[in-house]
């Protein structure tokens, strides 16, 4: 087997493996959504979704995450052009947007806890915090991943391995975006409408 073919085979199996991983993560989120759907009306006499969530904030978060998907896509385009600095620039942009998103989420969590609506209060709040928090945890992993990835790109340059990492990171980040769209619709939008 010549070297090029070997690399190709190596790549295809890594991507396939990563896709299957994404699938398993989808099942995790599907379970959490099912839990939220079951528990969202179990407010235990406390606050309901309609009373708690602010649409402007959720909408802002959505826009920020969507733009971060765009910037991470731009990093891939820069990779196709083999432009190292541009890759780093767009990755940094993605990182900043991701951090802002995370900051807003933590601030909302803090706010809820401060007004006495923590996860301890009801089945609804438990499922809300864990569903949204799991997404947030994935965002944190994505942020760490971006740091490591940029580090590798800076030190080792545009190797096959680092490009593979970039592509997989993109998959991961878009996946988180899609999960968030679901969270936005099911938790915030439907909650706002009192469904």
């Amino acid at each position: 087997m010549d070297n090029n073919l070997a690399i190709k085979a190596e790549n295809s199996k890594t991507y396939l493996g990563f896709w299957i991983y994404i699938l398993t993560d989808c099942v995790v989120f599907a379970s959490l959504f099912a839990v939220y759907a079951t528990l969202h009306s179990n407010t235990n006499g406390g606050a309901s979704a309609q009373m708690l969530f602010s649409m402007p904030l959720a909408l802002t978060q959505t826009l920020i995450l969507l733009s971060s998907s765009l910037t991470s896509g731009l990093a891939i385009i820069s990779a196709l052009n083999k432009n190292k600095n541009k890759i780093l620039f767009w990755t940094l942009a993605t990182f900043i947007l991701g951090t802002i998103f995370l900051f807003l989420e933590i601030r909302e969590f803090n706010h809820l806890v401060a007004i006495g609506d923590s996860w301890r209060e009801s089945g609804f709040l438990s499922s809300y915090f864990v569903l949204v928090g799991t997404h947030g945890l994935h965002i944190i992993i994505g942020l760490i991943w971006m740091i490591v990835l940029s580090f590798i790109i800076i030190i080792k340059g545009l190797t096959i391995k680092s490009m593979k990492g970039l592509v997989m990171f993109n998959l991961f980040w878009h996946f988180l975006d899609i999960v968030w769209i679901f969270i936005f619709s099911v938790v915030y939008l439907m909650g706002h409408m009192g469904l």
Binding site: A34, T38, S41, N42, N44, G45
Partner: peptide
């Protein structure tokens, strides 16, 4: 334990 018929049917049908 805060049961409602609503909860009940949901637990069954899930």
């Amino acid at each position: 334990y805060n049961a409602t018929d609503d909860n009940m049917s949901k637990a069954m049908g899930m």
